[in-house]
Amino acid sequence: MIFTPAVLRSEWTKVRSVSSTMWTLASALLVTVALSAGLCALTNAQFDNLSQQDRLTFDAAGTSFSGMFLGQLAVIVFGVLVVAGEYSSGMIRTSLAAVPQRAAFLFSKLAVATALAFVVGMVTSFASFFLGQALLGSHRTGIGEPGVLRAVFGAGLYMTLIALFSMGVAAMLRSPLLSLGILMPFFFLISTILAAVPVAKDVARYFPDQAGQKIMQVVPSSDGSAYGPWGGLGIMCAWVAVALLGGYLVMSRRDA
C-alpha cells in the first residue's frame, strides 16, 4: 500500500511545523490576489484606450487571474522546499531510517503537500476571481457564464499542478538551490519570453505553464491553439507525471 495513515499523519506534522510552509503559501495567495486585483482595476480604468481587437477579445475571467504568473513562483518555492528541504537539512536520513518503504514516504509527502496546495490554490483562485470582477466594473463577468466556473476551478488546479511539478523536479535534483535555480527562471522568464518569439512559440505552447494556463481562459486566444482548455491541462498533467516518475525513480534507486 502506497499511502499509510501513519506516514500521512507524520508528513502533515512535518509540513505544518515549519514556517516556510506558511510563508510560501500565504505569499502565493496574497501576491496572486493583490496583483490580479490591481491589474483588473487598471484594465477597468484604461478600457477605453484599448484597441478594437483587444476589446473584442477581452477575457474578464482570465484577467482576474493575471497575478498568477508571479504568485506561482511562491508555489514553486513551497513545492521545492517540502521535498528538497529533507535533503538540505539531512532529515532525509532520519526519515528513511524510519520509513524504509521509499514509495510510501515520497507519495505520502506529495499527497499531503498537494492537498495543502489544492486548498490554497482554490481559495486563491476564487478570491482572485470575485475581487477582480468587483474591480472590473461594467466589464465584469459572472460565475454562471459559460466556461467561467471551469476557468476559476482550473486556476486552482493550475496552482496545485505547479506545486506537484516542482516537487517532482526537487525529488529528482535533491537540492533546493539547484531546483529553484532551474524552475524559477524557467517559469518566470524562459517560458514567457519564448512564448512571445514567433518561431519558438510553437514549441513553447507545449511547456507546462503555457499549456496549463489555457484552463483559466474563457475567451480562446486568437493565435489558433492546437488544443483546448482541457487539452492544455492534460499536457500539463503529462509534464507533472514525467517529473513525478523521475522523482520516484531517483528516490527509490539512489543512496540517501
Partner: peptide, 16 residues
C-alpha cells in the same frame, strides 16, 4: 544535524 532546523525538538520527535 539530520534534523530540519526550523522544526522544534518536540515536533521533530512527534513526526517520527
Amino acid at each position: 544535524k539530520a534534523v530540519h532546523g526550523g522544526r522544534s525538538a518536540r515536533q521533530h520527535l512527534l513526526c517520527l
